[in-house]
Protein backbone atom coordinates (compact mmCIF):
# COMPACT_ATOMS: atom_id res chain seq x y z
CA UNK A 1 0.00 0.00 0.00
CA UNK A 2 2.76 2.43 0.99
CA UNK A 3 4.63 1.57 -2.17
CA UNK A 4 1.46 2.29 -4.14
CA UNK A 5 1.09 5.67 -2.48
CA UNK A 6 4.71 6.56 -3.11
CA UNK A 7 4.30 5.50 -6.73
CA UNK A 8 1.85 8.39 -7.11
CA UNK A 9 4.68 10.84 -6.53
CA UNK A 10 6.59 10.46 -9.76
CA UNK A 11 7.66 13.01 -12.34
CA UNK A 12 4.60 12.29 -14.45
CA UNK A 13 2.65 13.92 -11.65
CA UNK A 14 4.34 17.27 -12.35
CA UNK A 15 3.43 16.94 -16.02
CA UNK A 16 -0.19 16.26 -15.09
CA UNK A 17 -0.26 19.07 -12.53
CA UNK A 18 0.93 21.60 -15.11
CA UNK A 19 -1.89 20.54 -17.41
CA UNK A 20 -4.46 20.78 -14.61
CA UNK A 21 -3.08 24.18 -13.59
CA UNK A 22 -3.25 25.79 -17.04
CA UNK A 23 -6.92 26.89 -17.17
CA UNK A 24 -6.87 27.90 -13.51
CA UNK A 25 -3.70 29.93 -14.00
CA UNK A 26 -5.03 31.78 -17.05
CA UNK A 27 -8.28 32.69 -15.33
CA UNK A 28 -6.47 33.59 -12.11
CA UNK A 29 -4.01 35.91 -13.88
CA UNK A 30 -7.02 37.59 -15.45
CA UNK A 31 -8.49 37.91 -11.99
CA UNK A 32 -5.26 39.51 -10.75
CA UNK A 33 -5.58 42.34 -13.28
CA UNK A 34 -9.17 43.10 -12.27
CA UNK A 35 -8.35 42.88 -8.59
CA UNK A 36 -5.35 45.18 -9.00
CA UNK A 37 -7.64 47.75 -10.58
CA UNK A 38 -10.10 47.41 -7.72
CA UNK A 39 -12.70 45.44 -9.66
CA UNK A 40 -14.22 42.36 -8.04
CA UNK A 41 -14.60 40.07 -11.05
CA UNK A 42 -16.44 36.89 -10.10
CA UNK A 43 -17.46 36.37 -13.73
CA UNK A 44 -14.29 34.39 -14.54
CA UNK A 45 -16.22 31.14 -14.66
CA UNK A 46 -18.86 32.43 -17.06
CA UNK A 47 -16.32 34.16 -19.29
CA UNK A 48 -14.35 30.94 -19.57
CA UNK A 49 -17.40 28.86 -20.36
CA UNK A 50 -18.72 31.25 -23.00
CA UNK A 51 -15.38 31.62 -24.73
CA UNK A 52 -14.82 27.85 -24.67
CA UNK A 53 -17.92 27.31 -26.81
CA UNK A 54 -17.48 30.26 -29.17
CA UNK A 55 -13.82 29.43 -29.62
CA UNK A 56 -14.65 25.87 -30.56
CA UNK A 57 -17.38 27.03 -32.97
CA UNK A 58 -15.01 29.41 -34.71
CA UNK A 59 -12.16 26.91 -34.70
CA UNK A 60 -14.28 24.13 -36.17
CA UNK A 61 -15.89 26.42 -38.75
CA UNK A 62 -12.55 27.57 -40.11
CA UNK A 63 -10.75 24.35 -39.18
CA UNK A 64 -8.06 26.37 -37.46
CA UNK A 65 -7.34 26.17 -33.73
CA UNK A 66 -5.60 29.56 -33.89
CA UNK A 67 -8.67 31.29 -35.27
CA UNK A 68 -10.55 29.37 -32.57
CA UNK A 69 -8.27 30.87 -29.95
CA UNK A 70 -8.87 34.29 -31.43
CA UNK A 71 -12.61 33.66 -31.45
CA UNK A 72 -12.51 32.61 -27.81
CA UNK A 73 -10.67 35.79 -26.85
CA UNK A 74 -13.06 38.00 -28.84
CA UNK A 75 -16.07 36.25 -27.26
CA UNK A 76 -14.63 36.74 -23.81
CA UNK A 77 -13.88 40.40 -24.59
CA UNK A 78 -17.45 41.02 -25.72
CA UNK A 79 -18.92 39.54 -22.57
CA UNK A 80 -16.35 41.43 -20.50
CA UNK A 81 -17.43 44.62 -22.22
CA UNK A 82 -20.97 43.98 -21.06
CA UNK A 83 -19.68 43.41 -17.54
CA UNK A 84 -17.64 46.62 -17.68
CA UNK A 85 -20.50 48.69 -19.08
CA UNK A 86 -23.01 47.52 -16.49
CA UNK A 87 -20.68 47.74 -13.49
CA UNK A 88 -18.57 50.81 -14.36
CA UNK A 89 -20.80 53.00 -16.49
CA UNK A 90 -24.12 52.03 -14.97
CA UNK A 91 -22.58 51.44 -11.52
CA UNK A 92 -24.29 48.14 -10.82
CA UNK A 93 -22.90 45.93 -8.10
CA UNK A 94 -19.92 43.97 -9.40
CA UNK A 95 -20.63 40.74 -7.53
CA UNK A 96 -24.26 40.66 -8.61
CA UNK A 97 -23.38 41.29 -12.26
CA UNK A 98 -20.59 38.72 -12.08
CA UNK A 99 -22.98 36.07 -10.80
CA UNK A 100 -25.49 37.07 -13.45
CA UNK A 101 -22.86 36.56 -16.16
CA UNK A 102 -22.02 33.12 -14.78
CA UNK A 103 -25.67 32.06 -14.84
CA UNK A 104 -26.16 33.62 -18.25
CA UNK A 105 -23.16 31.78 -19.68
CA UNK A 106 -24.48 28.37 -18.61
CA UNK A 107 -27.89 28.99 -20.14
CA UNK A 108 -26.73 30.80 -23.25
CA UNK A 109 -24.13 28.20 -24.20
CA UNK A 110 -26.78 25.48 -23.99
CA UNK A 111 -29.04 27.61 -26.19
CA UNK A 112 -26.28 28.16 -28.76
CA UNK A 113 -25.40 24.47 -28.75
CA UNK A 114 -29.00 23.63 -29.50
CA UNK A 115 -29.26 26.25 -32.25
CA UNK A 116 -26.00 25.45 -34.04
CA UNK A 117 -25.10 21.96 -32.94
CA UNK A 118 -28.62 20.58 -32.62
CA UNK A 119 -27.84 19.12 -29.22
CA UNK A 120 -28.28 20.51 -25.73
CA UNK A 121 -25.89 18.25 -23.89
CA UNK A 122 -22.65 18.36 -25.75
CA UNK A 123 -21.05 19.74 -28.88
CA UNK A 124 -18.80 17.02 -30.15
CA UNK A 125 -17.72 18.17 -33.62
CA UNK A 126 -17.01 15.59 -36.31
CA UNK A 127 -13.78 17.38 -37.20
CA UNK A 128 -12.49 18.82 -33.95
CA UNK A 129 -9.55 21.18 -33.81
CA UNK A 130 -6.82 21.12 -31.20
CA UNK A 131 -4.22 23.62 -30.11
CA UNK A 132 -0.99 21.69 -30.58
CA UNK A 133 1.16 20.00 -27.98
CA UNK A 134 4.79 21.03 -28.09
CA UNK A 135 7.15 18.17 -27.32
CA UNK A 136 10.77 19.15 -26.77
CA UNK A 137 12.57 15.92 -27.70
CA UNK A 138 16.13 17.03 -26.93
CA UNK A 139 15.15 17.51 -23.29
CA UNK A 140 14.50 13.77 -23.05
CA UNK A 141 18.25 13.46 -22.60
CA UNK A 142 18.08 15.41 -19.36
CA UNK A 143 17.05 13.00 -16.61
CA UNK A 144 13.79 14.02 -14.99
CA UNK A 145 13.20 17.14 -17.02
CA UNK A 146 12.20 15.14 -20.09
CA UNK A 147 9.46 13.43 -18.12
CA UNK A 148 8.20 16.76 -16.75
CA UNK A 149 7.95 18.64 -20.03
CA UNK A 150 7.20 15.77 -22.41
CA UNK A 151 5.13 13.50 -20.21
CA UNK A 152 5.08 9.73 -19.88
CA UNK A 153 4.11 9.26 -23.53
CA UNK A 154 6.34 11.97 -24.92
CA UNK A 155 3.41 14.01 -26.24
CA UNK A 156 4.63 17.24 -24.67
CA UNK A 157 2.86 20.03 -22.84
CA UNK A 158 0.28 22.06 -24.69
CA UNK A 159 1.30 25.33 -26.29
CA UNK A 160 -1.24 27.06 -24.04
CA UNK A 161 0.46 25.66 -20.94
CA UNK A 162 3.72 27.30 -22.00
CA UNK A 163 1.83 30.49 -22.79
CA UNK A 164 0.24 30.50 -19.34
CA UNK A 165 3.62 30.03 -17.66
CA UNK A 166 5.13 32.75 -19.80
CA UNK A 167 2.26 35.08 -18.86
CA UNK A 168 3.36 35.20 -15.23
CA UNK A 169 6.62 37.18 -15.72
CA UNK A 170 5.06 39.20 -18.55
CA UNK A 171 2.15 40.25 -16.35
CA UNK A 172 4.52 41.07 -13.50
CA UNK A 173 6.52 43.29 -15.80
CA UNK A 174 3.40 44.92 -17.15
CA UNK A 175 1.93 45.66 -13.73
CA UNK A 176 5.08 46.78 -11.94
CA UNK A 177 7.39 48.14 -14.62
CA UNK A 178 5.18 50.09 -16.99
CA UNK A 179 3.38 53.40 -16.62
CA UNK A 180 0.13 51.78 -17.66
CA UNK A 181 0.53 49.14 -14.95
CA UNK A 182 1.29 51.78 -12.34
CA UNK A 183 -1.84 53.72 -13.27
CA UNK A 184 -3.91 50.56 -13.24
CA UNK A 185 -2.73 49.71 -9.74
CA UNK A 186 -3.20 53.25 -8.49
CA UNK A 187 -6.82 53.11 -9.60
CA UNK A 188 -7.27 50.01 -7.48
CA UNK A 189 -5.30 51.37 -4.55
CA UNK A 190 -7.05 54.72 -4.29
CA UNK A 191 -9.41 55.82 -7.04
CA UNK A 192 -9.75 59.32 -5.61
CA UNK A 193 -6.02 59.92 -5.48
CA UNK A 194 -5.67 58.55 -9.00
CA UNK A 195 -8.43 60.82 -10.27
CA UNK A 196 -6.83 63.80 -8.55
CA UNK A 197 -3.69 63.40 -10.69
CA UNK A 198 -5.71 63.13 -13.87
CA UNK A 199 -6.03 59.37 -14.36
CA UNK A 200 -9.36 58.43 -15.85
CA UNK A 201 -10.52 55.91 -13.28
CA UNK A 202 -13.46 54.43 -15.16
CA UNK A 203 -11.49 54.10 -18.36
CA UNK A 204 -8.68 52.32 -16.51
CA UNK A 205 -11.18 49.91 -14.97
CA UNK A 206 -12.59 49.21 -18.43
CA UNK A 207 -9.08 48.38 -19.63
CA UNK A 208 -8.51 46.10 -16.66
CA UNK A 209 -11.75 44.22 -17.20
CA UNK A 210 -10.99 43.79 -20.90
CA UNK A 211 -7.48 42.54 -20.16
CA UNK A 212 -9.06 40.02 -17.80
CA UNK A 213 -11.25 39.00 -20.72
CA UNK A 214 -8.21 38.16 -22.84
CA UNK A 215 -6.96 35.77 -20.18
CA UNK A 216 -10.32 34.10 -19.54
CA UNK A 217 -10.63 33.72 -23.31
CA UNK A 218 -7.36 31.81 -23.40
CA UNK A 219 -8.53 29.71 -20.45
CA UNK A 220 -11.73 28.89 -22.33
CA UNK A 221 -9.86 28.02 -25.51
CA UNK A 222 -7.66 25.64 -23.54
CA UNK A 223 -10.73 23.92 -22.07
CA UNK A 224 -12.47 23.14 -25.36
CA UNK A 225 -9.56 22.91 -27.81
CA UNK A 226 -6.70 21.42 -25.83
CA UNK A 227 -7.77 19.86 -22.55
CA UNK A 228 -10.58 18.09 -24.36
CA UNK A 229 -11.69 18.64 -27.93
CA UNK A 230 -15.39 19.18 -27.39
CA UNK A 231 -17.80 21.35 -25.46
CA UNK A 232 -20.17 20.19 -22.76
CA UNK A 233 -22.68 22.16 -20.79
CA UNK A 234 -21.03 23.68 -17.74
CA UNK A 235 -17.72 22.05 -18.63
CA UNK A 236 -15.64 24.57 -16.67
CA UNK A 237 -17.11 22.97 -13.53
CA UNK A 238 -16.02 25.57 -10.99
CA UNK A 239 -12.50 26.26 -12.30
CA UNK A 240 -13.29 29.99 -12.42
CA UNK A 241 -14.00 29.98 -8.72
CA UNK A 242 -10.87 27.99 -7.93
CA UNK A 243 -9.03 30.66 -9.92
CA UNK A 244 -10.66 33.34 -7.80
CA UNK A 245 -9.45 31.55 -4.69
CA UNK A 246 -5.97 31.41 -6.20
CA UNK A 247 -6.03 35.19 -6.73
CA UNK A 248 -6.93 35.82 -3.10
CA UNK A 249 -4.49 33.22 -1.79
CA UNK A 250 -1.77 34.73 -3.96
CA UNK A 251 -2.37 38.17 -2.42
CA UNK A 252 -3.53 39.52 -5.83
CA UNK A 253 0.02 39.37 -7.20
CA UNK A 254 1.06 37.41 -10.34
CA UNK A 255 3.76 35.25 -8.76
CA UNK A 256 1.78 34.56 -5.60
CA UNK A 257 -1.24 33.67 -7.72
CA UNK A 258 0.91 31.43 -9.88
CA UNK A 259 2.11 29.53 -6.82
CA UNK A 260 -1.43 29.26 -5.50
CA UNK A 261 -2.72 27.97 -8.85
CA UNK A 262 0.14 25.49 -8.97
CA UNK A 263 -0.71 24.33 -5.46
CA UNK A 264 -4.30 23.66 -6.53
CA UNK A 265 -3.06 21.94 -9.66
CA UNK A 266 -0.84 19.63 -7.67
CA UNK A 267 -3.54 18.89 -5.11
CA UNK A 268 -5.91 17.98 -7.94
CA UNK A 269 -3.31 15.86 -9.74
CA UNK A 270 -2.44 13.98 -6.55
CA UNK A 271 -6.12 13.40 -5.91
CA UNK A 272 -6.53 12.10 -9.48
CA UNK A 273 -3.67 9.67 -9.16
CA UNK A 274 -4.51 8.59 -5.61
CA UNK A 275 -8.15 7.83 -6.37
CA UNK A 276 -7.48 4.51 -7.99
CA UNK A 277 -5.67 3.32 -4.85
CA UNK A 278 -8.99 2.52 -3.23
CA UNK A 279 -8.77 5.22 -0.64
CA UNK A 280 -12.27 6.41 0.27
CA UNK A 281 -13.30 8.50 -2.73
CA UNK A 282 -14.87 11.24 -0.60
CA UNK A 283 -11.55 11.73 1.17
CA UNK A 284 -9.59 11.97 -2.06
CA UNK A 285 -12.10 14.25 -3.78
CA UNK A 286 -12.01 16.51 -0.76
CA UNK A 287 -8.22 16.79 -0.84
CA UNK A 288 -7.83 19.82 -3.16
CA UNK A 289 -10.44 21.77 -1.22
CA UNK A 290 -8.93 20.82 2.12
CA UNK A 291 -5.59 22.07 0.84
CA UNK A 292 -7.29 25.35 -0.13
CA UNK A 293 -8.80 25.88 3.30
CA UNK A 294 -5.65 24.89 5.18
CA UNK A 295 -3.37 27.15 3.15
CA UNK A 296 -5.81 30.07 3.33
CA UNK A 297 -5.99 29.66 7.11
CA UNK A 298 -2.23 29.40 7.42
CA UNK A 299 -1.70 32.55 5.39
CA UNK A 300 -4.28 34.56 7.31
CA UNK A 301 -2.84 33.47 10.64
CA UNK A 302 0.62 34.49 9.46
CA UNK A 303 -0.65 37.87 8.26
CA UNK A 304 -2.50 38.40 11.50
CA UNK A 305 0.60 37.65 13.60
CA UNK A 306 2.69 39.96 11.46
CA UNK A 307 0.21 42.77 11.84
CA UNK A 308 0.12 42.26 15.59
CA UNK A 309 3.89 42.36 15.79
CA UNK A 310 3.95 45.53 13.73
CA UNK A 311 1.39 47.16 15.99
CA UNK A 312 3.27 46.03 19.08
CA UNK A 313 6.43 47.61 17.71
CA UNK A 314 4.78 51.00 17.39
Amino acid sequence: MLADILAVFNLGLIFMALRVTTPILFAALGGVISEQAGVVNVALEGLMLFSALIGLFVGVTFQSPWLGLLGAIVASLLLSLVFAFVTQTLKADEVVVGIAINVFAVGFTVFLMQEFGGDKGSYNPAHPVALPNVPIPWLNGVPGLGMIVNGPNGQGLNVMTYLSLLSVPLLTFFLYRTVFGLRLRSVGESPLAAASVGIRVIRMKYYAILLTGIFTGMAGAFMSMAYVNMFLRNMTAGRGFIALAAVLLGARKPWGTFLAALLFGFAEAISNMAQSLRLPSQLVTMFPYAVTIITLTWFSVRDYRRRQRREAAL
Binding site: R19, Y227, L232, M235, A237, E268, N272, S276, S281, T285
Partner: peptide
Protein backbone atom coordinates in the same frame (compact mmCIF):
# COMPACT_ATOMS: atom_id res chain seq x y z
CA UNK B 1 -8.75 0.73 -10.60
CA UNK B 2 -11.68 2.85 -9.42
CA UNK B 3 -11.99 6.64 -9.61
CA UNK B 4 -14.89 9.06 -9.21
CA UNK B 5 -15.19 12.45 -10.88
CA UNK B 6 -17.43 13.91 -8.20
CA UNK B 7 -20.06 15.15 -10.66
CA UNK B 8 -21.42 14.60 -14.15
CA UNK B 9 -20.25 17.80 -15.87
CA UNK B 10 -16.49 17.91 -15.54
CA UNK B 11 -15.42 16.27 -18.78
CA UNK B 12 -11.82 17.43 -18.37
CA UNK B 13 -11.54 15.73 -15.02
CA UNK B 14 -13.03 12.58 -16.50
CA UNK B 15 -10.28 12.63 -19.09
CA UNK B 16 -7.65 13.36 -16.46
CA UNK B 17 -8.76 10.43 -14.28
Amino acid sequence: LVSYIGGFDDVAKGKEL
